[in-house]
Amino acid sequence: MSRSLLSAVTGNTPCVRGAVVDRLLKLSPRAVVLAVSIQAQGEGYPTVQRFLSGSGTALAGTALPGATGDPVVILRQDLLSLRRSADASHVVLAVPGDVDVLSLMVELWRPRVSSGSLGDHYDAAPLVVAVDTEAFLADIGCVHRTQLLWSGGDRGESVTRAEAAARQVEAADILVVPRPAGRAFEPGDVELIGQLNYSSLLLTSAGTDGAEGELPASLVRRLPPGADEGWRSRLEPVGPPRARRGGSGEVRTLCWRARRPLHPERLAEALAVVMSGVVRGRGHLWLCSRPDVVVAWRSAGAYLELREADRWLDEDPRCWAAASPQRRMLASWYWHDYYGERRSEITLTGVGLDQEAVRSALDKALLTDQELSLGPLGWTSIPDPLLGDIDRG
């Protein structure tokens, strides 16, 4: 039996998400839509509501019984059931904006001992994200309010609205940006969205109701085998930049790299210059105070998060086996006989960035030759105001 096609569609407003689903159904009239909503239930698992629609199933118009539990487990069961009972050739998973859709897709595709892989039953279509520019611009600068982002497990992740907006754009294989009704895009609106995810296909169209324009047939194509590995690699702390370097107008992106450790005190002093005008920043650091640890850099709006995310790969084959193919490829490309894959790489996108000032500030935060000669044992004695000093007791 041939595998069905699974599309995932989300958006930052119900209006643009629904419009894209409706237009996708014009490309695939027999598709079954599985619409999802998730509600928190105190400290326990959330309640997951699902609704079926579309002409490809006799169950159209059916609200499935609400279930409390891990959203990934519940949705996997729904998708497998649709494949068995309804024999749906194409399922559209309509995901609300409070779901970390990339993490959700990775977990849905992860093989399970009891039920195998979802890839045994479905081929993946491109992950589609619809973006209302007005809502996006309001959210990307909002760091004083938080929201729960769901993927799997018994609780969501509390993030700023700016972080949620940035993650959603970065998750897309295809970005659909409707033009606001009655007016043109504001300068830089689409440019900023496109800069945050240069590898996606960016589509613009007229009418927030989605009535104008047709979506290309590429939205319902089957991705090559291993698409889930590509999604997983985007979640790893060490990976290629997703934002486009350069830019036009006031929206610019720079990528800074270094092959020697950063001094945490000087980096802390440089942050005021580095973060000026930054809308989104992602990357990883090699801090001298933590020579074996990958420190993830993630900022959205004015909020910056630095955290210990992973360990640098060493010569232990088990470390390499656990990494994604993309991580292994990058490690081989950048491998140093003494330092291994260790390096810093940050991508910063913003409006009116002073790129020379940012690069200079970061370069000055690197260890000097004299400090570098101290070696890892000496580096760890340097105070770290960013992540705290390591307890050597």
Rank of each mutant, 00 (worst) to 15 (best):
L6D: 12
A8E: 04
V9P: 07
A19N: 04
V32R: 00
S37N: 12
A40M: 08
G42S: 11
P46E: 03
P46G: 01
Q49M: 11
R50A: 14
R50Y: 07
R50E: 09
S53G: 13
T68K: 14
D70F: 13
D70G: 09
P71E: 08
R76W: 06
S81Q: 13
S85F: 15
A94Y: 00
V95R: 03
P96A: 02
D100H: 14
V101A: 09
L108C: 00
L108H: 03
R112H: 04
S114T: 14
S117E: 09
L118P: 07
D120V: 07
D120H: 09
D123F: 09
A124N: 09
V128K: 05
V131L: 10
V131R: 01
D132K: 06
E134H: 09
A135S: 13
V143F: 07
V143H: 06
V143G: 12
V143Y: 00
T146W: 09
R155N: 03
T160K: 07
A165P: 03
R167E: 10
A171G: 09
D173C: 06
D173H: 09
L175G: 03
E191F: 01
Y198H: 13
S199N: 13
L201W: 11
G210P: 09
G213Y: 03
R221L: 10
P224A: 13
P225A: 13
G230W: 06
W231C: 07
P237C: 12
G239Q: 15
R242V: 14
R242P: 02
G246I: 02
E250P: 04
E250W: 11
V251N: 12
L254D: 01
R259D: 15
R259L: 12
R260T: 03
R260I: 05
H263A: 10
R266K: 15
E269T: 02
G277T: 10
R282C: 02
H284T: 07
W286H: 11
C288W: 08
S289E: 03
A296Y: 09
A296G: 14
W297Y: 15
A302V: 13
L306G: 00
L306K: 08
R307Y: 12
R307C: 11
A309H: 12
L313I: 13
D314S: 14
R318T: 13
W320T: 01
W320E: 10
A321L: 13
Q326F: 08
R327K: 07
H336M: 05
S344P: 08
L348I: 05
G350N: 01
V358F: 03
V358D: 05
V358E: 03
L362Q: 10
A365R: 14
L366A: 02
L366I: 01
L366W: 04
L367Q: 02
D369V: 06
S373V: 00
G375H: 10
L377D: 15
P383F: 02
L386V: 03
I390N: 01
D391Q: 07
D391W: 09
R392Y: 10
